[in-house]
């Protein structure tokens, strides 16, 4: 694929440019062109959530998004969340509640949890479970992840 499209977007707060083939996924762009490997490939078809990113504040599966669609948008990945101390509470909750085992699902879980808390700052147990329905985890059995999100929400104004 020789043809590429020049796009500009904000990546984790910084203006970014990339030349991407039109058929490329946002996931492949982030991992292979930009070199941010925190966002994971788990299935490539929207079923696992390992590739979750925020686009203009909405959580989406980056494996289903065309990279060219990033043009003009604000993209946030797990690395971007980690760089902002405002998200330490969420990350610490995952660590302290045991929400991380092999860790492969964790970036997607964290990004999705961030979105979930932006929608529901005081989520019910049920809202957390439903909010994570698009993120698979094979290790934890989800319980500690759900507890981590609940803990992160505690004390949020």
């Amino acid at each position: 694929m020789s043809l590429t499209v020049e796009i500009r977007f904000t990546l984790n707060g910084s203006p970014t440019r990339a030349a991407v083939p039109p058929g490329l996924t946002a996931l492949a762009m982030l991992r292979d062109i930009v070199g941010l490997t925190g966002t994971k490939y788990g299935c490539g078809e929207g079923e696992c959530g390992a590739c979750t990113i925020l686009v203009d504040g909405l959580s989406v599966n980056s494996c289903l998004m065309f990279a060219v669609e990033c043009d003009g948008r604000a993209i946030t990945t797990v690395e971007g969340l980690a760089a902002d101390p405002a998200n330490d509470r969420l990350r610490d909750a995952f660590v302290e509640e045991g929400g991380v085992q092999c860790g492969f699902c964790t970036p997607g879980m964290i990004v999705q949890s961030k979105y979930l808390l932006s929608q529901h700052p005081h989520p019910s147990h049920e809202q957390i479970r439903r909010g994570l329905e698009g993120n698979l985890c094979r290790c934890t059995g989800y319980k500690k992840i759900i507890e981590a999100v609940a803990k992160a929400a505690e004390g949020t104004p």
Partner: peptide, 14 residues
């Protein structure tokens, strides 16, 4: 907590 969890949760683990 797992010792390697903070890096994993930051997306740094390779």
């Amino acid at each position: 907590p797992k010792m390697d969890a903070p890096e994993k949760a930051a997306g740094k683990t390779r």
